[in-house]
Design a binder for these strands. Structure first.
Lengths: 134, 134
DNA sequence: CCAGCATATACTTCAAGAAGAATATTCTAC
DNA sequence: GTAGAATATTCTTCTTGAAGTATATGCTGG
């Protein structure tokens, strides 16, 4: 049954962290790398796992792949997000993720400003909006 | 983290069925065997799995082991029971379980009557309240 | 104490999935 | 079209757990 496939997604801390972040809004893969502080391959595989089971959606925006929660949200996912929200408030890993997300988002605002000035070219966003690991 | 241990419990249809049944009230192992229509060893192992992770409790009543949901119920479990309740209504496996549970419960009422007459001796309850598989 | 029922544990086999390394694909800018 | 960045896939190794078989434990009634 379908519900079990959902629960299989939730048995892994990395995937819980991903869903927790996506509950705040869409995010691109490289942001996940920075926030989760995990190697690219790990992030990519967990995202693929979630995608195959319909818990996240992806679309391309220029050279980036943006992941988000599916619309409309399956009700089972909705229950789980509520449970996560309720259970995870006190967990340091998840709080730290949110902190890193906020930091990147404030950087992003600055990026957004910069973009207006450069006429919308996102070409070097990767060098502004996030710390390159390589 | 603890939440993941809970989700690991929910990745298996048999365990979901067990929790779904326990949401209706406590039940002894042999009833699970009848309702789930699974071999004793399977039932016993899944119950042990749930017990180790704190999703069910067990106590002995005469020669039977009665399983129930923990009191007080952890809030994470509560969320999951609500989700189950909401998601599983239409699933035939779960509906069939409930039907078999009701049948056994009505037999049980009859057993209760019989017991009053025998002065409370439960010695042959197993031959009345459920169909012996052996 | 012994038989028999109710339940649990140990052991084996098999499949799924997590992590890491290497490599492939896709897009953009020049 | 070539380089380089962003992301995905493939392959290997290791661990967990599901199912089955056999066996053990614990309780009850004689």
């Amino acid at each position: 049954m379908n519900l079990i496939r959902i629960y299989e997604c939730l048995c892994d801390e990395t995937r819980l962290r991903i869903l927790h972040l996506l509950a705040q809004g869409p995010l691109c893969v490289c942001y996940f790398q920075d926030i989760l502080q995990l190697p690219q391959v790990a992030v990519s595989k967990h995202l693929a796992y979630l995608r195959e089971r319909g818990l996240v959606e992806a679309h391309r925006h220029e050279q980036w792949k943006i992941y988000s929660l599916p619309e409309p949200r399956p009700k089972e996912l909705d229950w789980q997000l509520r449970c996560l929200q309720d259970s995870v408030q006190t967990e340091e890993v998840f709080r730290a993720d949110l902190r890193r997300l906020k930091n990147l988002q404030s950087e992003c605002c600055w990026v957004a400003e910069a973009l207006k000035q450069t006429g919308g070219s996102l070409g070097n966003k990767r060098n502004i909006g996030r710390t390159s690991k390589r």
